[in-house]
Structure formats: structure tokens, C-alpha cells
Design a protein around this nucleic acid. Sequence first.
DNA 1: CTAAGTTTCAAACAAATGTTTATAACTGGA
DNA 2: TCCAGTTATAAACATTTGTTTGAAACTTAG
Lengths: 221, 221
Amino acid sequence: MAQNDTVTRILDTAEVLFAERGFAETSLRTITSKAKVNLAAVNYHFGSKKSLIQAVFARYLDPFTERFHRALDELEAHYAGQPIPLERLLETMAGSVLEVPAERNSLKVFMRLLGLAYSQAQGHLRRYIQEEYGSVFTRFTALIRQATPELPDSERFWRLHFMLGSVIFTLSGLDALRDIAEKDYGEHVTVRDLVRRLRPVVVAAMQAPLPDHLSSAPQEA
Amino acid sequence: MAQNDTVTRILDTAEVLFAERGFAETSLRTITSKAKVNLAAVNYHFGSKKSLIQAVFARYLDPFTERFHRALDELEAHYAGQPIPLERLLETMAGSVLEVPAERNSLKVFMRLLGLAYSQAQGHLRRYIQEEYGSVFTRFTALIRQATPELPDSERFWRLHFMLGSVIFTLSGLDALRDIAEKDYGEHVTVRDLVRRLRPVVVAAMQAPLPDHLSSAPQEA
DNA sequence: CTAAGTTTCAAACAAATGTTTATAACTGGA
DNA sequence: TCCAGTTATAAACATTTGTTTGAAACTTAG
């Protein structure tokens, strides 16, 4: 299993370095030397650096989407057409997110990669993620819609992205923030702690009153 | 005023390109050719690419911190020792943020730069921003503390970062999100619209009930 | 006008990057 | 054992990068 070993070692090393420094700032030579494989191995096994980046994402996102779809299946079966409560939906998502990286690296790496995918204008990455994994997000938002019928569609859209920002931003910068929190408040924060803290915040944010310009005026379609 | 013209043209061009592509992905040749100045001009006027990046930030952050400090002065004078309501603090911050870029480019560029500063592990940038502009943030959080006495310190710390994530993430990815929103909901969203939408969300998030593991157990110091 | 100082410019530099190539080493089945 | 197919390796390749250089052009004060 020499091939698989090389491929895995490249992926393991690349994901850590990408998360630490970003994609453009991580050279193939840095990856291959740290992974103790030949420089040409990346192009041989993956074709290009771009494809390596996508492969790093696929290794997280493939199991995640699979699990998330299954979890949503169960949830829908259990509620049998009834709208699923917002809290249950959020818990399910958090659960699926937490399950996957537990098997390999830390959630931090995963989130940091997601944050980079959004922030770095790496066009190909955004497109790739949207095309490959957009469907599960669409499904999730449709369920959120049933759970929050009082929200205008556009308002829900924006609030979901507000919350997505909270999660990705905080978790992707977790290391630096954790150091501060530990120094200033003497408490060591785990990812699970953060998720616990996030839950009431996200729920409250989604259920916040409508902004003035929407609550008084007639709501849009 | 030939020098100033060159310097300004470099800064104007660089900030847009940085915001669009990131720092590592934007070469000095791209900047200088688009700005119609000589390649060596960057090193002549700024010394290095790193210093150019910092100068781009300084041009936003210097006026911002000055205004924000002044606005907080007024607010503190008006409330004369009384704790300032959370909404007023948030409005003041939003106001200061909105004022500055109105004079030059769009807020989007500013936010996107901030997002990049956090997400790209550009160590020097994080350090630079923390050292140069950390004090105003410290002052702001102290006021937030008085406005939310019911929150444990660590909980407030995390919630502030949750909200910071919402703002930076949404506003820095504004272009892509706006396109979706316009296509799906037929509404053109301005930055001011978004800030209006953010307000009730942020307030509700900051005032959300404590998470289970904090609300029942005795609260930490 | 002239000389000193500042700014521009084209060219070159060294270093680093992703990728390709040709060869060697290894692998498993006939 | 031998041979196809796969994988590993070192070397080279063509670009691109940030930076430096030295001379030209320009500006400004005496």
C-alpha cells in the first residue's frame, strides 16, 4: 500500500499547512519535504496543486455531506412532515460537523479551510465547493425555512450567513482566540464548549425581531 | 505633487486588488501596471510589499480609530459615568465604520481587507493591527462590559467574536452574497441595508440566555 | 541658470514557484 | 524469471516573484 501511503501523507501534511498559512503561501516543496515524499508526487497523484487543494476539501466534505444527509433523513422521518424545530436542525448540523473531523484531524483545521475557501478569492475553490456540495446546503436551508416561517425569505438568507460567519470566523481563528481566553479568563476552551456557547446565540439571532424597515412595512414576497 | 499622486495611485489600486484576490495572490507587477506606475515605485515609496500592505490598512484604520475614539468620547460625556446602552454602543461603532470608507472606496473593500487580515495567517499583519489599533478595541470592550453586566466575562468575549465574525464574514463576502440575494429575492442590498439587518441580530445574540453549562452552574469570575 | 535633491524608469538579479521529463525502483501476475 | 504497469526519484524547465541598481528625468531652491 505504498501509493496510498504517499497520497495520505501528502493530504495529511497539506491540510495542516494550508490551514496554517493559506493556499498560495504553502508551496509544494514545503508540503512534500515535510511529508517526506518526492516533489513530483503531488503532480503525479493529484495532477496539480489546484486539484490537491480540492482533494483536501473532498476528504472532509464527502463524509460530512453523507452523514448530514443521513441525519436529515432520520430527522425528517421522525417528524413526518411536521416542521422540524430550529434547535433540532442546528443540533443536527453541529453533530454532523463535529463527527467528521473527530476521525482525523481537529475541527479547527476543517473550519479554517472553510474560512479560507470563502475569504481567499480562490475562484476555483468556491465554484468547486458550490457545485459539489451545494445540494445539501439547499436541503438544509429549505428545512430551516419551515422552522422559521415568520421570517421573510431574504431576511432568513442573510441571518443564515450571519451565523455562518460567526461559526466559521470563530472556529477558524480558534487557536489565537483560545490563547487570549485562556490568558485573560483562565479557562481552556474546547471546540465542544464553543458549540455549546454558540447554540443559544444562534437561536436568539435567528429569532430576533425584524429590523425596523421590515417589521413595520409590508413584508416582501 | 507627482510623488503623492504615485503613492495614492498605488494605494488605490493595491487596496482593490488585495481585496479581490488576497495579498499573496496579488503581485507588485499587477498593481503597478494597473496603477500605471513603474514597478520600482512600490519599493521606492513603501520599502517593501509588506509595508505596502500595512499602509493600505493604515489608510483605513487611522481615520477610523480617530473617529471612533471621538465618538466614544462624546458618548461617555453624554452618559456621564452611567453605563451606555448596548444599542448605542453598537450604533456608534457602526457609524464610525460606515463613515470612513464613504470618503474613499466602499466599505466592502475595508471589510474584505479585515477578513483577509484575520484569515490569512499573514503573521505580520495581525501583529501590526493588534499593536497599532488594539487600544480602541480594548476601550470598546470595556464599555460593552458595562452594558452587559449579566454576562460572564468569558461569555461576553466569545459572543463579541461571534458577532465580529458575522459582520466581517458577511460584509467581506458581500459581492457574491448580494448576487445570490438579488437573483433569488429580487432585492438589491446596500451596505446600509445589511447594517440595519445586523442590528437586531447582534443585540439579540448578545442578550441571548446563557448556555446550559453556565446558566445552572455558578458563574465563573 | 545651476546644482542638489527627489522621483521615475528600464533592466537586471537572485530566489522561489508549479510543472515536466527521463530514469530508476518497485510491484504483482504469467 | 521476466515483463508490463505503477510509483518514486532527481534533475531540469520555464515562469513568476520581490527587490536592487544605476542612469535618466524632473523639481526646486540659491
